[in-house]
Design a binder for these strands. Structure first.
Lengths: 340, 340
DNA sequence: ATTGGCACTCTTGCCTACAGAGTGCCAAAG
DNA sequence: CTTTGGCACTCTGTAGGCAAGAGTGCCAAT
């Protein structure tokens, strides 16, 4: 692709993002590429169509960029340096000042991002296999129930109400906590789970069944699948002019309502740390359909954190990327040691 | 309103619910009221329009029932006895068998109801002012943080991560728990909060600020406003033929995403126990717009539980009411003493 | 009080015509 | 060989006109 073809692609994507309508050669020549005439641009466009960067909805309409063109556009934005949008800075100060529960911070980040970009925002975190336990606690409720609390590094807390198959006194629960904490505190769960299981079971044979239950619940709480999601701003995408036809909206709503689907998506598109951009149906297996997604993710202290947004393919990537990076900085920043 | 007018209203509503189109006199005469002729029905319809039960979208179109007609229709359904739909019974067995966390049961009920009715379902619970505390527990995290657990009757657990303004040792936290539990266990929070506050503060002056924080957090956890919502099935209402026009959808999505708005609505429309039906813009202040809502609610053991669904005004109330009652029975049933 | 008949009204779908926008190609100029 | 202006062609979207269909309102007869 020549330098000039690149410029044409960039101009087409830019114009299309801002108008939503097929872009004609004359408009390009007038608004962006005044040096070259419409006829020349027509020739270039003809070539670009063959190369798969643009398409015509029908003969004698302007051109629409394909996902390939969006990819070029987005990559070009990502290459350059962006400055963080200053409007969000104030809000981020609040976010850092209130040293709240990390889950609250996630929820707030999601809200912030959604409002800033007018798209659906999504924040999530999940423990990794290498996560280190701070402490495990059983809060006795009654003879058959206890609340299992797993405190991870960085004040992340996971919990589950347990229903034991046999009677469990307060003392036995304390005994189990003590044993688990002795072995597991400060160590990666993956390293201790094997030894711990046999150790606890051997010592406490009369409540073995309940112990096994407790161990397996800790296991599933700490499994890498166990993302906790915060989605915000679904109503924003209803207002977009792109989605008159409701079918696509329905598809994305189904996706957002099903935690399994979200998990699949997040696991698939945040494999490498940092900012990932997934465009429309660039990947035919994605469940995004006519939507694009940006994900920023990182792994720290055994916890995987993801912040992302989902919007129309024809979204203002420049603004979206800037907003995501700003909020991400606030979320993962080492402001006051609130986070991995 | 005469007996025959009532029949006409019922027939119009029934037909409109099932076709979605204005109902003409001829169709009524043919399908529902074969004894009387179309002309007679036209006369009745003319009267019913004056009475405000039906409207014409334009001259020479069929009639559309107003919210007043829907009210008559729904009241007539509610008067009769309904049998519980047997298809849901199997699922409810599962729901009862797994004696899970009450919040999990709520979430599952919401899913069940949503799937059964193809509408948005909503389940919620909140403590009442008269709620009795089972126990209060502080789980020490570090010198400045603890997890506050408030265990209510019926194994309902509320929690909040606290961030203390001064150092709090494990021992002090245990001391505070012990004091609170001595006074508050098994008693209504409203009765003890006043005395408790001064009692705890007097004894533990050096950590007074932190104690005050803890007390006020318990207060807000137990405030009647503090509903926990589970909404499911938003994608269903996108498929409905009624909402081509996206504006109304956006309104309802905003409502569903904002907990404050949901709380307002639930508090307003579940004042009396049992089944409440709110129709379209029968109440001009409601934020439902073009939607109807059914709410079933009850107060038991100091906890208010609400199960409801939101669908188009033109919804199949008969099915919806049956489904809601079935799931509600399962949710609030005394199956195995899991609930208020 | 009820009913059949008839004129009137309003929507919907369909066809045509037409303006507008954009391309593709060609021939001329650089 | 590249660039450019010109021109014919194609497709969309909109507006107007027309006919069919559905439903009402009214009136006179039962």
């Amino acid at each position: 692709m020549t330098e000039r073809q690149f410029e044409v692609v960039m101009a087409i994507v830019f114009e299309y993002i801002h108008t939503g309508e097929p872009v004609g050669s004359r408009a390009l020549s007038k608004k962006y590429l005044t040096r070259i005439s419409a006829a020349t641009i027509r020739n270039e466009m003809s070539d670009l169509e063959e190369l798969g960067y643009i398409t015509q909805p029908h003969t004698s309409a302007g051109r629409i960029p394909t996902s390939r063109a969006f990819r070029v556009y987005v990559d070009s934005i990502l290459e350059g340096k962006r400055e963080r949008s200053p409007e969000l800075a104030d809000r981020l100060l609040d976010l850092k000042r209130q040293r709240a529960d990390f889950e609250e911070v996630l929820a707030y980040s999601s809200q912030l991002l959604s409002r800033a970009t007018q798209t659906v925002a999504l924040a999530a975190s999940a423990p990794m296999a290498q996560v280190r336990l701070e402490r495990v606690e059983f809060v006795w409720i009654d003879l058959y129930h206890a609340l299992l609390l797993v405190v991870l590094q960085g004040r992340l807390i996971h919990q589950k109400l347990l229903n034991f198959p046999c009677e469990m006194s307060r003392e036995i629960l304390e005994e189990i906590s003590r044993r688990i904490n002795t072995v597991a505190s400060g160590r990666p769960w993956d390293d201790v789970r094997g030894g711990l299981q046999s150790f606890v079971l051997k010592e406490l044979t009369e409540v073995a069944e309940s112990c096994r239950l407790a161990m397996s619940e800790i296991d599933s709480l700490l499994s890498a699948e166990n993302f906790r999601f915060f989605t915000t701003g679904v109503h924003h995408i209803l207002g977009l002019p792109d989605f008159q036809d409701i079918g696509r909206l329905q598809a994305i709503l189904c996706l957002l309502e099903e935690e399994d689907a979200l998990t699949r998506m997040v696991r698939r598109y945040s494999v490498k740390d940092g900012l990932n951009v997934i465009i429309g149906n660039e990947d035919p297996d994605s469940e995004l359909g006519a939507f694009s997604a940006l994900f920023s993710s990182s792994t720290g202290k055994g916890t995987r954190t993801v912040l992302g947004l989902i919007g129309p393919v024809r979204m203002d990537y420049e603004r979206a990327i800037a907003a995501l990076e700003t909020v991400w900085d606030g979320l993962s920043g080492d402001g006051d040691s609130d986070r991995p």
